[in-house]
Design a protein around this nucleic acid. Structure first.
Length: 84
DNA sequence: AATGAGCGC
């Protein structure tokens, strides 16, 4: 259950930190939370994350402006999260 | 531990 407006961020470099993602996404709006998804067994990052924004407009800006954007040499996939 | 599309402890 999410309490905000989350976007799915895929194709991130494995070494990316939540701080780096937060900095990158705060370019389009107020970021309330960043969660990198880790493999439960090995603890390694799975290469994607979720960014929660303070408002829906920011989330939609992120999708429109940052989907496909270059991030540390990789083209990010940014989409509205399923919010389950 | 590794890997390259993926929607989450």
């Amino acid at each position: 259950m999410s309490q905000g407006f989350s976007v799915y961020v895929g194709n991130a470099p494995f070494q990316t930190t939540e701080e780096q993602i937060g900095q990158f996404f705060s370019n389009v709006g107020q970021v309330n939370n960043v969660r990198i998804v880790y493999d439960r067994e090995t603890g390694r990052p799975r290469g994607f994350a979720f960014v929660e924004f303070a408002d829906e407009a920011a989330a939609q800006r992120a999708v429109q402006e940052l989907n496909g954007a270059d991030f540390n040499g990789r083209q990010l996939r940014v989409n509205l999260a399923n919010n389950k």
